[in-house]
Design a protein around this nucleic acid. Sequence first.
RNA 1: GCCGCCUUAGCUCAGUUGGUUAGAGCACUGGUUUGUGGAACCAGGGGUCCCCCGUUCAAGCCGGGGAGGCGGUA
Length: 376
Amino acid sequence: MTQKFSYSLNATDGRARTGVISTPRGEIRTPAFMPVGTAATVKAMMPESVRATGADVLLGNTYHLMLRPTAERVDALGGLHKFMNWDRPILTDSGGFQVMSLSSLRKLTEEGVTFKSHFDGSKHHLTPERSMDIQKLLGSDIVMCFDECPALPASEEDVRKSMEMSMRWAQRSRDAFGDRPGHALFGIQQGGVTEELRGISAEKLREIEFDGYAIGGLAVGEGQEAMFGVLEYAPNMLPLDKPRYLMGVGKPDDIVGAVARGVDMMDCVLPSRSGRNGQAWTRRGQVNLKNARHADDPRPLDEGCSCPACSNYSRAYLHHVYRSHEMISGMLLTWHNLHYYQDLMQGMRDAIEAGQFEAFQAEFHATRAMGDIEPV
RNA sequence: GCCGCCUUAGCUCAGUUGGUUAGAGCACUGGUUUGUGGAACCAGGGGUCCCCCGUUCAAGCCGGGGAGGCGGUA
């Protein structure tokens, strides 16, 4: 018999919580950070290296894989896990984020969204039903509802209308998903930065019933203060006994703040994208390896880090290979960034289970406040 | 020696029939990235336009002289 998808809560400390999501493809320790592998790869990383950083689950993307290589081709080749050589859980975004990020390339109606491919101009119709179909073809373990992610700032009226449509799409997604043991469907709360709208959205999602609940529509221009404001109440509107996923977040301090407010899962392109662009995230904050001050620095990026970039290479080397446009630059920094993010998650899980999360946060902020090490 | 071509930012080069504060790419100095259209993007610093003389209201551009460089030829 197929193992079911389930979530169990382990420990709480304040509003922060640890738990485990069980799937037929393995367990996900929460709070979890999920590296983003949009196009069937975490850019610049081998899957075994991603795993070595401590990741339990990856993201894939409906829109991008639909265009290329197409969901049907992935299906014919044995599914996304086999295709990309990652046998652990995969969460797929529904294409809802692209409704915003590719707004100049699409038309939106109640029925769904028509995208004009940035590759060849061909038209692709994405509806809740089609998004469910694609995510099924991909073999996704955690399927996301098709929603509209509106950019902020926006008028409350626009956010309300958008949220209401996303809730109708959530029902259509639920209906189309059907009964798929071992696979999960997550609803996505919308409502911008308005508590009332977030409440209406949460109520609707709970009524439909999902295997997990995402908080969507944040980190889209509102700023950290406003986002934390929403997180003061949004997680509490969602069921206690299901995972809560804050979509698209974020920077390390966003992540710590979100976990403190009861979030269980997050994803973000930042560690991987920054890595390819010469930027590192460390315990002492953001470090730009492009900067001239690293050129003669024999010290590691972060001497407290055990990743390959920090164990085997100097800042001077990381600086050199970035400036030389060598591919290993993106590889090493992406690895470091993902390793740091996973270290951070493990640190939070340990602290929560030990009832020390407040002290952990104080230490986290104190270390960052020190700033990066002085130049040699 | 003679003939031809060239000389504009650190580098490689654009610069209309003379007309505002002389541009680009790369390099340099920084910054930004939040459910990836991104090994991306943004901003900034930097120039006796080889030198001198002339013509002109006005010269990177036209004329003369000189200095470097490249090529050809004795």
